[in-house]
């Protein structure tokens, strides 16, 4: 069993290195030009956002609609850092750290009262908190209010790639740890979990804070990569966009979030020249997915090498 795990991990590592190498080659060969590079960065940031929300919604089963609130904290931490204190890549790193600390604190403040709520009530409460964070930033002096911040570019796609890798490893390993299994038990049946001696509120808070911190990383990277941040970019509709990515890919499936984030960004790029029908096609795609696959593209399943190996083995067995 141990060997299996090891092999699988090596395969994942291989996939990471391979995709990094392929992207590098494609970029240096000019096949991925500046346009696709921005698309690539959007995909990366969307993946981080989707997996961080997936941790809260998919793994722990808590319905949060305030995710953009944590993204904006990360974005402004990094933005203010770049603008007023340290520029360049060190500024981005400091901004990411500052964003994670602040959003962890805010998430804790939000989580302790609200995570005692369930379902719709929790959704509305988090939605409110997301807006509160945004309005606070809108009225602060250092954030330049409604005009937002105009920033130099400080984040390359390499940084985003490795951030995606790190965040994914954190989320996946959390999901498989004892804490993660406790979170899954909360998702499956809160009362049963409580009866088994799991402190449900504590695990809900843990997942919520971790998700918030990862979302703030995405926000910080966004600020460093996309020149302008304004409070009105992070309204609840941004939270809904993230939610759509999670539901589209499958709640609880990290690989599903990867696929959905990639597909949605690509769909958007492909449909660029048909601007008037773009949102209709996008909406239609969502309707079709929800009708035919109500649990999202992958449901709760993951695409894994162990699964792939099993399929291959089975196929081989059948052939013999």
């Amino acid at each position: 069993m141990k060997n299996w795990m090891k092999k699988e991990n090596l395969l994942w590592l291989g996939l990471i290195v391979l995709s990094y190498a392929v992207l590098n080659i494609l970029i240096s060969a000019g096949i991925i030009n500046n346009v696709y590079k921005t698309v690539l960065m959007t995909i990366g940031i969307n993946i981080i956002l989707a997996i961080s929300l997936n941790l809260i919604i998919g793994i722990t089963g808590q319905f949060s609609l305030g995710h953009a609130g944590f993204m904006i904290i990360g974005a402004y931490s990094c933005g203010v850092m770049l603008k007023s204190f340290v520029s360049g890549v060190p500024g981005v790193f400091l901004g990411i750290i500052a964003g994670m600390v602040i959003s962890a604190f805010v998430a804790l403040v939000v989580a302790i009262p609200t995570l005692r709520l369930r379902g719709d009530y929790l959704a509305i409460a988090t939605l409110g908190f997301g807006e509160i964070i945004r309005i606070v930033i809108l009225n602060m002096k250092i954030t330049n209010g409604a005009a937002g911040l105009i920033l130099p570019k400080a984040v390359s796609w390499h940084m985003i790639f490795w951030a995606v890798v790190i965040c994914t490893i954190v989320v996946v390993n959390f999901g498989r740890s004892a804490h993660g299994r406790a979170c899954i038990s909360v998702r499956e049946d809160e009362i049963a979990a409580e009866a088994m001696g799991i402190n449900t509120t504590q695990y809900k808070i843990l997942a919520f804070v971790l998700g918030a911190m990862i979302a703030s990383v995405a926000g910080a990277l966004y600020a460093g990569a996309f020149y302008v941040i304004k409070p009105d970019m992070f309204t609840y509709s941004k939270s809904i966009d993230i939610l759509v990515l999670v539901v589209f890919g499958g709640m609880g499936s990290i690989t599903g979030s990867f696929i959905s984030s990639t597909l949605v960004s690509l769909l958007n790029t492909v449909l660029q020249q048909f601007s008037s029908v773009r949102m209709i096609v996008y909406g239609l795609a969502l309707v079709v997915i929800m009708v035919f696959r109500p649990s999202g593209l992958l449901g709760r399943k993951e695409l894994t090498f162990s699964g792939l190996l099993k399929v291959l083995k089975k196929g081989k067995g059948a052939a013999q």
Partner: peptide
């Protein structure tokens, strides 16, 4: 002609597109 959907992220992509 390009449409940025009133979205600044999209505007960044299109700026690269126009330069191309």
């Amino acid at each position: 002609i390009y449409d940025n959907k009133s979205d600044t992220t999209e505007a960044v992509t299109l700026a690269a597109q126009l330069a191309n």
